[in-house]
Computed example of a mutant assay.
Amino acid sequence: MVTWFDEARLDDERVLGAHDVALRALAESGARVRRESHDASAATAEAIAGQQGLDQPRAVIAAGPDSRLLRAVLEPWCPVPFVAWPGPALPGWAGSLDLVVMLAPEGSDRSSASAVAEAVRRGCQVVVACPPTSLVAEHAAGRYTTVLPTVTGDQLATAVVMLDYLAQVRLGPRADADSVAIALDAVAQECSPFRDLAVNPAKMLAIALADTTPIVWGGSVLAARAARRVAESIRRASGRTALAGDAEHLVPVLEAARPRDVFADPFADAADVPADLRPLLLVLDDGAEDPVVREQRGRLQAAAARRDVRVETVSTDAATEVARYASLVLQGTYASEYLRIGFVED
């Protein structure tokens, strides 16, 4: 069975209507951030009031599967040691002097419940963003525990709730839910299914990705995290390989690309010979101007130029670091969904 990409499907109202649930969920990303921020504001204020007069924790431990997202945001800013610990336990030294934070958007993960229960047993201060009646919330019950209630199951919206709390207790940068929601709304408007190919960057990116092996790179810590999320969404949408990593790991992949054969007929024997998918370098640019980021971007683009590899760039000018991360991820996710829509099996 041959899978091919039909770009006409991206402007077909009937086809787009059949994928309305997925596209609507993307369009509502900003609304979920606003809802979670509003609904958790009272619990956040109460938790902050309870911290008045207390010393800063000895260390902050981000537990659970989404701990690396918190680390990407907080590690450069946190005034005390910060550790991401995604496993079902805690580091051996964690105790009553430390703060354990966790994102549990669904609240049903048994590994997260185990980690938070251990934190409670050790007497750690615990702050969990999760549904208030979930498995994780039940295991988090304790004297030094705060549950920031969430309801949408959205990882990013849940993270914004936690980051807002941490910013107000001076353990992280300003998250600003409004700026994140505004950035997400802007992407939803630009990438709307009602905008046709000529003016829709996500649809154009999906067309570029369709017959390639995407190599996704982000220079800053948050952009690199976004690159991994985008590569994951491309793999889910297409069932094909999509790579994300540091420049030192991706440059050899680009340099190994075979030279383009300008005389090749892409339609010859298409039914019998699988297409030789060439790489495409997808750069996620969040505006970071660090010299190391510029040098790595230059190396990747030079390697791509030497092997005649196409380069596409997704950029953002959102107001805050978290908003820029959110914008990059949503743009990549829209492109992935259009990629899924465009594929047809014969």
Rank of each mutant, 00 (worst) to 15 (best):
F5C: 15
F5K: 15
F5H: 12
R9Y: 05
E13Y: 01
R14I: 15
R14H: 12
L16T: 09
V21R: 15
A25G: 13
E28D: 14
R35I: 00
L54P: 02
P57A: 00
P57H: 07
A72V: 00
V73L: 13
V73F: 05
P79T: 07
F82C: 01
A84G: 03
W85Q: 05
G87Q: 11
G92S: 11
S96I: 04
V101M: 10
P105F: 01
G107Q: 09
R110F: 03
V116L: 06
V128Y: 11
T133R: 14
T133M: 07
A141D: 13
R143L: 06
T145L: 07
L148E: 09
L148K: 12
A157H: 10
V161W: 03
Q168K: 09
L171Y: 04
P173R: 10
P173N: 03
A175F: 11
A177S: 15
I182A: 14
I182S: 12
A183P: 12
V187I: 14
Q189M: 12
C191V: 05
P193H: 10
F194V: 11
A198S: 15
I207R: 13
R229G: 04
R240T: 06
H249G: 13
L250W: 11
P252A: 04
P252G: 08
A256H: 13
A257I: 11
P259E: 07
R260I: 06
D265S: 14
L284K: 02
V292K: 15
R294H: 11
E295D: 14
R310K: 12
T313P: 00
T316H: 04
V322C: 06
A326C: 07
V329F: 04
G332I: 13
S336G: 13
Y338D: 02
F343L: 02
